[in-house]
Write a protein that binds this DNA or RNA. Sequence first.
DNA 1: CAGCCTATTGACCCGCTGGTCAAGTTTGGA
DNA 2: TCCAAACTTGACCAGCGGGTCAATAGGCTG
Lengths: 208, 208
Amino acid sequence: MESSPERRLTDQGRERKQQILDAATVLFASRGYQATRVADICAEAGVAKGLFYWYFDSKESLFADLIRSMRLQLRRTQGAAMDPSTDPVTRLRAGVEASVRFMADHAAYFSLIESERTDESLRPVLSEGGEIYAADTQRVIVEAQRAGLIPDYADAQMLTLGVIGAVSHFCQFHRNGRTTMSVDELANFVAGWTVRAVGADDRITLGG
Amino acid sequence: MESSPERRLTDQGRERKQQILDAATVLFASRGYQATRVADICAEAGVAKGLFYWYFDSKESLFADLIRSMRLQLRRTQGAAMDPSTDPVTRLRAGVEASVRFMADHAAYFSLIESERTDESLRPVLSEGGEIYAADTQRVIVEAQRAGLIPDYADAQMLTLGVIGAVSHFCQFHRNGRTTMSVDELANFVAGWTVRAVGADDRITLGG
DNA sequence: CAGCCTATTGACCCGCTGGTCAAGTTTGGA
DNA sequence: TCCAAACTTGACCAGCGGGTCAATAGGCTG
């Protein structure tokens, strides 16, 4: 019931912990958090139940770990996605494409957070990120509006929600097999879709 | 463990059943299906636990009942939404606006189906509808493409997914309070968003 | 009133699952 | 070589929660 104050892990320890984390990711993604039993995770990871509680305080704390570690990775990847020397619409495009690719690569993770969004006990952990991503996006959009590339009588916040939503739901459809597009095609299509929706259409591409 | 072969209900019986159904809707929507206990539902409805099993075979069967009855209502409402004598883009607009309004009116229901989409045991019931809605939408889009109102080098199916996704995720943001727009404003905005994204922009409105 | 069906209760059952623990093994470093 | 800490196990526990049931009340029909 404690463990938090920095337990020193050996190489083997770190490996085992990751092993459990991986097993949990797979199971959470396919059955959801609630429906996944600690025993299942241990079986999947091939370790005894007690070991779970050597590395994690609780099932919920493992979940938090999972989310946070993934978020770190996501943020890093996204950071490198947009070239600051280009114009905002180009950056928006690039950001959207990168996000789509990233989400496709980490399908299991995103299907997890998507499904567990309404879980009362998990809400805090889940919502603590995400606003950051929104802020990033909104910044680009406002910049584009200032540069006259996007009509500025539309609410920037709504446009932001639209972009984020579009990326996430197209990826969701991709995960569910509702579309069989390749990731490249998808990324391109979604970029086109959002640029058009946002009102920055230069009429050059309609993606697909 | 049976009950299905048409139990005859008195007026009072029907009322009680609905009462339990309503209680379940509220709780499912706010905590999710898994996290809601049968005892909670009974407490909310103000009846004893045994009564639950007088009217329903199981928690899962209540859920199925809920979904099916709601779907019926939804389909009826949507049927009346679009005026067949207008052009496809106008109909698309109208359909989107009507859907947004409907989803806002039935927020509890949609937040429920949205959150429980990944639940293994519930998937069959959940997915048995939904394709119908997609088919309706796609028909309008294809029609618009034939009429030259939407560029036809874009994949109609992808555009359909985009429309459906946009409606559902904007409504989701509305439910979560991520936007404080009124339902009317929202409906208008989403209609504008989708029309632009789909490539049918007549440059008259950018919503908001 | 008698018989039957619906309606309603709450105590009870039992399997499941998150979490604990005492006991044992391995590893690392002094 | 030896100690302590990291690691690993599986049996065990307690409470929770879905589902059951016997008992009772009430209402309709003959």
